[in-house]
Amino acid sequence: MPFSLSIIAEAWPTFEAGLITTAIFCSVASVLGLVLAVPIALAQFSRSWPWRVSAKVLVEIVRDTPFLVQVFVIYFVFPATGIPMSSTVAGILALTIHGAVYFSESIRGAILSVPKGQVDAARAAGMSYPLTMRRIVFPQMMGYVLPPIGNQIVGLIKDSAVLSIISVPELSMAFQNVLGTTFAAPEAFVAVAVLYWLLTSAVTLVMSRLEQLTPTHRSTQEMTSLLAKADR
């Protein structure tokens, strides 16, 4: 059975539609997830226990159940309580919640990695909690937080393949359709693998660009160039 590029070419419109759907779903979920992740992470440092506990419970529930089951719970349980649910909404909601929790864990870890003295100095200068977060902690943790967030967005793209099960017409759905009509497994697999690779590479590229813009990165860069000069 020779490998045939023409099969991929013929199936291209199907793949293209799936690729675009996956890209849109994951972009929306990543952005919404990041927005939600910040309060989920911060709540776990709160001085009042109801915030701490509810954030922790949410994190544990999402981390300790399969994504597929989360999708089913959202897709089937919400309509039963009277909230209408389409596969698009359920898919984006599931990806968003999943992403938010995993992002929040990275953010929490990054906050913990900022040395306590940095916060002490800000508090001692009379800076309020939000100001300390905005001016000191967030800029410093950017360098720590971007690499794991990048990995998690890549993970989100791969997890989104599951959404074909509730018939979201995304990339792995396209793969299954092409497989079902052409029976050309090697071609379909190579095509879908390359397309997922393209998506995840784009994320990796963007994240490493962003990383170069972080203040920590800039200060270390400047230091290394200075050290290099001193060596010469």
Binding site: K158, D159, V162, F189
Partner: peptide, 21 residues
């Protein structure tokens, strides 16, 4: 690279549907 670059879901489908082929 293939394992880490593609969704597990697709890997499962490939093993189940493609190996019989």
């Amino acid at each position: 690279s293939i394992v880490r670059g593609t969704p597990l879901f697709i890997q499962i489908l490939i093993v189940y549907y493609a190996l019989p082929a």
